[in-house]
Design a protein around this nucleic acid. Structure first.
Ligand SMILES: [Mn+2]
Ligand SMILES: [Mn+2]
Ligand SMILES: [Mn+2]
Ligand SMILES: [Mn+2]
Lengths: 226, 226
DNA sequence: TATAAAAGTTAGACTAGTCTAACAAATATA
DNA sequence: TATATTTGTTAGACTAGTCTAACTTTTATA
């Protein structure tokens, strides 16, 4: 049985491993920063997780999840994203409110609960932010996605996920009526600052910053021209 | 902000106050036994709760919730019972499985979650065991109930709650097809051992022990004779 | 390559929650 | 009322998780 704290370390390591795709290892300071603790604290915990064979750790070395540690991490991420979906779909939470509560709910221990919840939600593949929900067997649904910055002028695409899940960004998207599934057409890319003129659904085109375009994942639409 | 542990002490004190109705106070040993800790541990925590003005406590004296402590306790009980109802109604848990998970869920901090959950469940008044669910304002729905032992031969009644929520009792009730709302007619009371011959719904009469009858709350049906 | 900077570790301290063992107060009983 | 029993408290210790401050190792850079 893992404590909330241990679980948070495992999930953090998993998330960090997703970030640096090629190199799924993390450093002590990186982990500490992610979790909001001091490096000394992370060192202690990493030693403990090593004892439990959940991470590989050597003094001054990089940290990696073991198979077991990864499985535990995936299980927590699965709960997190299922709960977010529940809050969003069933309890009418907005997509900027779900994360904080799911951060607590992900630690509830009950295999039956997780699986019944998944069934109740009709086996969703993605959470409200477009992130894949791990299956009971640990597999992650995939979807090919690129950043909006990779879409060229004239191309169309569909929003599939947000890269930045901060409240301020999510609320801005809401104001712009951008949500998962929204169609976006890139009208023009401004060389000067990387900003874009985009048409959201069928509204009037508007300019968005490069920072914006770097925070949104989309799927390119094969243009419907002959 | 209260810790899980502090919350458990407050809920325990509240439940104990319901048990000894006239005297809503509890002793240190009583609390410790209820929570599965040693008396020394309870003493420490009670001092801490007194500091926070959640209980009245004096060395060697009885313990009582303050208004504030009671309100906190009620809020936790509310969450506990709403979650039990959710698990039972929406996720298909049986009534002997819900308590353990609700024991964890009751500590999730999110006022919005509680209220949305209540709304999602259509403002239930009673949990799967027939216990009243506190309202957002702290009020408890009431229902007049008596123990099955108080029902005389020839009288009919309807099951409204279980006094004993142990798995073994709940599963026995399930086997007997007794649930909240089930109609029961007392055919005969055996003076010798207090056991009863009862008819459950329209099945064949069967004998149940006094221990059984002491564990079930019912509401008397005014007989339909003229 | 020598040195400076960054990254990581260790030692020691603190809090929350728990325990055991010894003790003290309150209550029941002879 | 005197004594025994029950009830509750105190002191001291332990673990988990955190911190600060000092130190060490690794990496970057002049
Ligand atoms: Mn999240
Ligand atoms: Mn968490
Ligand atoms: Mn319960
Ligand atoms: Mn609890």
């Amino acid at each position: 049985m893992l404590s909330h704290t241990e679980e948070n370390y495992l999930k953090a390591l998993l998330k960090l491993s997703f970030q640096n795709e090629e190199k799924p290892e993390a450093g002590t300071n990186e982990m500490a920063a992610y979790l909001g603790v001091k490096p000394a604290t992370a060192t202690d915990m990493l030693k403990k997780l090593k004892e439990k064979e959940l991470v590989t750790y050597k003094k001054y070395g990089k940290i990696l999840l073991t198979e077991l540690g990864r499985a535990k991490g995936i299980a927590i991420l699965r709960k997190h994203r299922l709960w977010e979906t529940f809050l969003y779909e069933k309890l009418d939470f907005s997509w900027d409110e779900v994360h904080e509560v799911a951060e607590q709910l992900e630690h509830i221990q009950s295999p039956k609960l997780v699986n019944k919840l998944e069934e109740f939600l009709d086996f969703p593949e993605f959470d409200p932010h477009g992130d894949p929900i791990p299956r009971a067997n640990g597999e992650l649904p995939t979807v090919d996605k690129v950043l909006l910055t990779d879409v060229k002028a004239g191309e169309s695409c569909q929003v599939v996920a947000v890269k930045d899940t901060s409240t301020v960004f999510l609320q801005y998207l809401e104001k712009l009526q951008v949500t998962i599934g929204t169609l976006v057409k890139v009208m023009e890319v401004v060389d000067f600052d990387g900003s874009m003129n985009i048409q959201i659904a069928s509204s009037d085109p508007r300019n968005v910053s490069m920072k914006f375009a770097e925070s949104l994942f989309v799927k390119k639409k094969t243009s419907v021209t002959v």
